[in-house]
């Protein structure tokens, strides 16, 4: 599998790695002394991964601009990642706290000089009674990029979470480079959701009718709530290119494919409405 986060060991990869950028940022939140609001604990930016405390940006599920939550925005200090770069981002949502993580702009994946692979690994822990809202911006896989994106989320049994992920297959009018991703969510150590996505010149059949077809954008919203253990939301194929599905555990996945990023965003937002408050935006 292509899950290794080590630098590409191939001769080309090693050659490129000389000029490559490695960054490791982290953030944590904790319950404030007053026992109900949340605050940022540690906040560590690194190179191109710039983190800052933020204010409510746009509509958001679950927290709805609540001023009492810990808000962090991830901003890219440079273009990229470029081929050969390795980014790592650790997120820790402490017991009982609520963190809203947003992004300043889309992540544009660009090729490096030698074609080496770039990597972005995100590890998230959500502790007991804590809530994470990760309302990300799109990842754009530019032509000739070569990227692996890996998100691993570990939830406590009583944790809640909602995230949005959007992948755009190339900038306007271009074909995408090679992109692979994995999003794995465990709850109390057990697997809840584990999906890889692969598209680009090396991915046989990704443009066929089983995977993405002619779509230029694909994404999902994953929501987890222990309250759904006994009564999960019903499956809703609410659009020919989108569906809301209950997972085998207390979570739902809203998945959509679309001709462009705008339509994708609309479909995912539409899907949220089927969850009702406080998820709908």
């Amino acid at each position: 599998m292509r899950d290794s986060l080590l630098p590409d060991p191939s001769p080309r990869g090693l050659a490129r790695a000389i000029g490559a950028m490695f960054a490791h940022a982290s953030v944590s939140s904790e319950l404030a002394a007053n026992g109900h609001s949340s605050q940022i604990g540690n906040l560590r930016s690194d190179g191109p991964l710039v983190l800052r405390k933020s204010n409510p940006k746009g509509p958001e599920p679950l927290t709805h601009r609540d001023p009492g939550v810990a808000r962090v925005m991830l901003a890219a200090g440079t273009a990229g990642p470029l081929g050969g770069d390795g980014y790592r981002f650790d997120v820790h949502v402490g017991a009982g706290s609520t963190m809203v993580l947003t992004e300043a702009s889309a992540l544009l994946l660009l090729p490096g000089i030698s074609g080496a692979r770039s990597r972005f690994a995100i590890n998230i822990t959500v502790e007991a009674g804590a809530t994470l809202v990760w309302w990300a911006e799109p990842i754009i896989a530019a032509q000739h990029c070569n990227h692996h994106h890996e998100v691993r989320i570990s939830l406590a049994p009583s944790a809640r979470m909602i995230l949005r992920e959007e992948m755009i297959l190339g900038r306007h009018g271009e074909t995408p480079g090679d992109f692979t991703s994995r999003l794995r969510i465990t709850r109390d150590g057990a697997p809840l959701y584990d999906q890889q996505l692969e598209f680009g010149p090396k991915a046989a059949g990704f443009d066929g009718a089983a995977v993405l077809g002619a779509a230029r954008a694909t994404g999902s919203v994953i929501a987890v709530d222990p309250a759904w253990q006994d009564a999960p939301p019903q499956a809703q194929p609410y659009h020919p290119q989108a569906v809301l599905t209950p997972l085998a555990g207390p979570g739902v996945a809203i998945a959509a494919v679309a001709p462009d990023s705008l339509e994708l965003r609309n479909l995912l937002t539409q899907g949220l409405q089927y969850l009702g408050p406080p998820w709908a935006i």
Partner: peptide, 8 residues
């Protein structure tokens, strides 16, 4: 590996 259109 996922197959979004197959799921939908």
């Amino acid at each position: 590996p996922s197959a979004p259109l197959a799921d939908i």
